[in-house]
Design a binder for these strands. Structure first.
Length: 253
DNA sequence: TGCAGTGTTGCTTC
DNA sequence: CGAAGCAACACTGC
């Protein structure tokens, strides 16, 4: 930790990009910072002060009273007086420092699949060719394709009308095409709505995202499916995760 | 009151 | 090898 501090102190940020669910910050010198927010982590940009061991926001607005301030685990202070804070109730987030020349061989990065929004229908379909198993866990597997977690996997399969337990090798061309279109649509919507703040996630400003307001399947157990002639959204367990779907229009293939 | 469940993924086990 | 189980953690809500 002390070593990490010394390595990044007074270094200018050269660039910030995203790869999969990593935030990649290149700094002056030969190092790059990788941040993974995991389940409950989120970076917030603002000003805080420590009062009785608690970080208290000095900026009015959504940051001010949010209980997420309570779970700030790290704070970096910039020379403009602003701070970047990692709030992470469950402490799964990770920050690592990597030598620039080691970035491409980094195991966390090396095995990642493609970015779904950079795929066309041909390359998307091709990915599924060699794949077996249940569609939902595969969609969520970052070595298969990145960026799709439990929420958006449920939303994509709901939109595509595909049952989460469907076997990939049984899917027809038209099914893959529907999954492709739904993936593009849902991920673009997710970006437009700036994420899902049903739980802990916040924007860097402290504001909530809006996707929780348009969720159609995830955490909608017992509600009526909003598609025409929809059933009741049902929850099952796949692997160790819950899956939500409409039993009426998402049939197993 | 306990226990299942929670925007993830990497390691272990079979 | 692939698939599945489970751990890391702290808290909520049924």
């Amino acid at each position: 930790m002390a070593k990490f501090k010394k390595e990044i102190k007074n270094k200018k940020i050269v660039s910030v990009v995203r790869r999969a669910k990593f935030i990649v910050i290149n700094i002056e010198g030969d190092k790059t910072i990788f941040i993974h927010q995991k389940i409950s982590g989120h970076l917030m940009y603002g000003k805080w002060e420590l009062k009785n061991g608690q970080w208290v926001s000095k900026i009015s607005g959504p940051l001010k009273e949010d209980r997420q301030n309570q779970y700030i685990r790290y704070i970096w202070t910039f020379n403009n007086g602003h701070q970047l804070a990692m709030s992470d109730i469950r402490r799964f987030s990770r920050i690592i420092l990597v030598r620039d020349r080691d970035v491409s061989s980094l195991k966390e990065i090396r095995d990642l699949g493609p970015e779904p929004l950079k795929l066309d229908i041909e390359s998307f379909s091709k990915l599924f060719k060699s794949k077996k198993g249940k569609i939902k866990p595969v969609l969520m597997d970052p070595t298969f394709m990145v960026g799709i977690g439990n929420i958006y996997a449920d939303e994509i399969l709901w939109d595509a009308g595909i049952h989460p337990l469907s076997r990939i090798d049984k899917l027809k061309k038209v099914d893959i095409s529907r999954i492709f279109k739904a993936t593009q649509k849902i991920l673009k919507l997710a970006i437009k709505y700036k994420g899902d703040s049903m739980d802990d996630y916040r924007l860097p400003s402290g504001k909530k995202g809006g996707y929780q307001n348009i969720q159609r399947a995830y955490q909608q157990t017992g509600k009526k499916c909003t598609k025409q002639d929809g059933g009741i959204i049902t929850r099952i367990k796949i692997g160790q995760r819950s899956a939500h779907f409409c039993p009426k229009h998402q049939k197993i293939t």
